[in-house]
């Protein structure tokens, strides 16, 4: 199978007048269609930087990125969900979701905008809130809107940068299930940065562990458990502990 996204030795050093701060030292990752990849690593190792480079918000110093092009009009190769929902507070939920579709880069005709919005509102269970405003929604619902806004441009790859870290455990689990549903329903490849080993083992097909800064891929752990996964199951716990040790750089017992 052809990868939908190929990162080849991505290197990035942050420079300012005082010092050079190397963040990524040659990160190579392949992501395949309909795959959920979780990226983990010690904090400050450059996980978010990697996503921002994939999305074009930062430029890599060296290395190449190959991304499959969007298959239909008005679709982007990648879209991103940030740690905070960052909804536009002056727009209704509906207007937030279709924001990207109305930009000249996408030029989606208005009836298709309506169609896509309706489908996304249904997918994310936000139907009854279409005309509400962000401040009227809970944190979890706001993050759902952010996910819908990113999905509206039908990306090949959805990037998520610790999207649920600010949410409570129950909301978080709901949204994790939703991510799996989105992958199944929209056939999107999802790359999620997380610092929660349980979350990674719960949703990921593969977990990519980055080393300390400057980061390289130190290990790739496949998670071969059927969905829905049971966080109390022995295999689940074994992988979760393995991931935790790998991130912390501790030896196996």
């Amino acid at each position: 199978m052809e990868p939908v996204l190929t990162l080849n030795t991505i290197t990035k050093t942050f420079r300012d007048s005082e010092q050079n701060c190397p963040a990524l030292a040659g990160v190579s990752i392949d992501a395949y269609p309909r795959e959920i990849l979780c990226i983990m690593g010690p904090s400050g190792c450059g996980k978010s930087t990697l996503l921002r480079i994939i999305d074009g918000l930062e430029q890599a110093d060296a290395g190449t990125i190959q991304i499959a092009q969007g298959t239909m009009a008005g679709s982007l190769s990648v879209a991103m969900v940030f740690q905070d929902p960052a909804l536009f507070p002056w727009l209704s939920i509906y207007e937030n979701i279709v924001y990207g579709l109305r930009l000249t880069a996408q030029k989606v005709p208005e009836d298709e905008v309506n169609e896509r919005a309706a489908a996304l509102l249904a997918l994310t269970h936000l139907d009854s809130f279409a005309h509400s405003y962000p401040h009227q929604l809970s944190g979890g619902m706001q993050q759902r809107v952010a996910v819908a806004r990113a999905l509206a441009v039908t990306p090949q790859v959805l990037l998520m940068d610790e999207p649920f870290s600010a949410l409570d455990t129950f909301t978080r689990r709901e949204l994790e299930d939703e991510v799996i549903r989105i992958r199944d329903g929209m056939k999107t490849t999802i790359i999620m940065v997380t610092h929660n080993p349980e979350e990674a083992v719960y949703i990921a097909d593969r977990i990519i562990i980055l080393s300390e800064r400057p980061a390289v891929v130190s290990e790739v752990l496949p998670v071969d458990l059927p969905h829905p996964r049971d966080p109390a199951g022995p295999e689940f716990i074994r992988i979760r502990e393995l991931v935790t040790r790998r991130v912390l750089g501790k030896p196996d017992p």
Binding site: G56, L76, G100, T104
Partner: peptide, 20 residues
């Protein structure tokens, strides 16, 4: 972050000013 969302969705600089 609002501007980044607009950039992420490929808003032109003029659209970033107008819509964000």
């Amino acid at each position: 972050r609002w501007t980044e969302v607009a950039m992420m969705l490929h808003a032109t600089p003029f659209e970033q000013v107008r819509t964000v």
